[in-house]
């Protein structure tokens, strides 16, 4: 097995590891559209990164974090439903990103890599960034776990029971933003949400507790990564889409089990 494939595999596994529990929160809190919005805002991050000549990974991460904060603040106002807010933010940041990119003659964004990721081109440096972020986010999730669950079950109850709802919710949003920013490189903007949601949804059919669901989602995500990269190696299929397809197949396989329960 060539070295670049091993690096790709390890990077994918690091992403899937943290995408499991985070994806569960996306499924539980019905935030599927949140991932898309953040991914769309990434292009804005890339454009700004070029404009201000900062490291693109950092620019994308900052872009996602800022957008997540913006969303939290707008949600506090409760003027519009969250899905409407996401729709507005998602497309206006994408449009702004495209406009800024067009003003820069020297920018040549590789649209395919942007949309579908470039897992097979990740470097050792990328791998270590992804691994470190993944471990840090997992640690933060573990620390906040009970509070996060309490919030997800009922925010009012959590507030009355003394949990700082705003702070915990903001932390969750920021953790998601961070993971989406780094995972984008692996599966790309179009498929990032799939990697978060599909393993979690599959896992729902197989688990009896929230913790089980998170762990199984991680394992399913890792399996999908291995299957996708394997198929890419053997049959030369594009890696990102193959990963998502693998996870979709696992989801289909889990459906008969869901009916039995």
């Amino acid at each position: 097995m060539p070295e670049f494939l091993i690096i790709a595999l390890l990077t994918g596994i690091a992403v899937a590891l943290v995408a499991g529990p985070l994806g569960c929160f996306i499924v539980w809190r019905r935030m599927a559209y949140f991932g898309d919005t953040l991914a769309h805002s990434a292009l804005l991050g890339v454009s700004f990164g070029w404009l201000l000549s900062i490291n693109l990974n950092i620019a994308v991460a900052c872009g996602c974090l800022i957008l997540a904060m913006l969303l939290v603040l707008l949600q506090q106002k409760r003027l519009l439903a969250t899905d409407t807010l996401l729709g507005i933010l998602s497309h206006s940041t994408l449009a702004l990103g495209l406009v800024i990119a067009s003003t820069q003659a020297n920018i040549r964004i590789d649209i395919t890599a942007y949309l579908f990721g470039d897992l097979l081109a990740v470097s050792i440096a990328d791998l270590s960034t992804v691994a470190i972020v993944s471990i840090l986010v997992l640690a933060a999730l573990a620390m906040l776990w009970r509070k996060l669950l309490a919030l997800t079950v009922d925010e009012d109850l959590a507030h009355v029971e003394g949990i700082n709802v705003f702070w915990v919710r903001t932390s969750l949003m920021l953790l998601m933003a961070l993971v989406i920013a780094i995972a984008m490189k692996v599966v790309g903007v179009l498929l990032i949400t799939a990697l978060l949601i599909i393993p979690a949804a599959t896992s729902r059919n197989l688990s009896k507790t929230p913790e089980q669901m998170a762990v199984i989602a991680s394992l399913l995500g890792m399996t999908s990564i291995a299957l996708g990269i394997g198929s890419s190696y053997l049959w030369d299929s594009p890696a990102g889409p193959s990963i998502v397809l693998a996870s979709a197949v696992l989801f289909l396989l889990s459906l008969p089990l869901a009916k039995k329960r």
């Binding site: 997800t152 079950v153 009922d154 009012d156 109850l157 009355v160 688990s207 507790t209 929230p210």
Partner: peptide, 16 residues
């Protein structure tokens, strides 16, 4: 101790 009118919990989380 608070008992709301209803919970926002749905079936997406397996919770005993």
């Amino acid at each position: 101790g608070y008992m709301p009118q209803k919970l926002s919990l749905d079936g997406s989380m397996p919770l005993t």
